[in-house]
């Protein structure tokens, strides 16, 4: 049994009477890829917001590597080793592609005003390392984000490439755990198939543990070790893809009850 990296106990959050999450238990082991599914409004993104420190839970506990994340600011959570992407891609549109990835290494680097003013050796060394790491991360997606693209603003990228760049930016934070919010949304089947393969590589080659929200069941099936289904802020089912996808509650949550039952 590998080490438990993220452990969430009885997590709840209430927005003015609305239970966005209710007594949620969740865990991730080192090296796992966990798929989170559930119908719209099930609380999936709130769940990510809570792990990454953007929303404070009403009650419950979040342990990362055995230490609580409660009360940390988002940047402190990232510094602990959790990075995320956003469902509606949120790049720094007017910074170049290289800069988008370089800025994500902020919490792993430390040169400040003095270093940059006096262009010290340590500063140059660090800048070089930041740049090299950025190019290495971008190179993970083939040739499409490197070369001449490095100095182009992120706003010129296509939708699929923006998603890729967002993943690259999360990777560049040198975190252990990646939270991917609908990584293949808006991609065509070929692109999403390719990205599915890359998500696998993120674990095998880069050693990331991954939690992924995804609506595309093909992707979830191909890449997840374990699937968790949320509905109305509660865990509906968890287990292997087959177990979860054949669970009647899950089917009901997605498709609704059969008509005759509803009328009775």
């Amino acid at each position: 049994m590998s080490e438990r990296i993220l452990d969430i106990n009885k997590l709840s959050v209430t927005f003015g009477g609305l239970h966005a999450l209710r007594d949620l238990d969740f865990h991730v082991d080192e090296g796992e890829i966990v798929g989170v599914i559930g119908p719209n409004g099930a609380g999936k993104t709130t769940f990510f917001n809570m792990i990454s420190g953007m929303v404070a839970p009403t009650s419950g506990e979040i342990l990362f590597e055995g230490k609580s994340l409660l009360g940390l600011d988002p940047n402190q959570v990232t510094a602990r080793g959790i990075a995320r992407t956003f469902q509606n891609v949120r790049l720094f549109a007017n910074m170049t592609i290289a800069e988008n990835v370089m800025v994500a290494q902020h919490c792993r680097t430390k040169q400040g005003v003095w270093g940059s003013l006096f262009n010290t050796r340590a500063f140059r060394q660090e800048e070089r390392e930041i740049r090299e790491h950025a190019e290495k991360v971008l190179g993970f997606f083939g040739t499409r984000l490197i070369g001449y693209r490095l100095e182009q603003p992120a706003s010129v990228l296509s939708y699929a490439n923006r998603r890729r760049l967002e993943i690259a930016r999360a990777m560049a934070t040198k975190s252990r755990l990646l939270l991917l919010d609908e990584p293949v949304a808006g991609m065509n089947p070929m692109e999403s198939a390719e990205l599915t393969g890359l998500i696998g590589k993120l674990r095998s080659e880069w050693g990331f543990t991954i939690v992924m929200i995804e609506h595309d069941m093909n992707v979830v099936r191909d890449v997840s070790d374990r699937v968790v289904c949320l509905d109305h802020g509660e865990t509906l089912a968890q287990g292997s893809f087959e177990e979860v996808s054949s669970n009647p509650d899950v089917i009901e949550a997605y498709l609704g009850r059969p008509l005759e039952k509803k009328t009775t």
Partner: peptide
């Protein structure tokens, strides 16, 4: 620049805004 572009994302990317 990241803060100027999108402050909450900048914070989520590990910048102590």
């Amino acid at each position: 620049m990241a803060i100027r572009e999108d402050e909450s994302v900048a914070e989520a990317m590990g910048i102590n805004t």
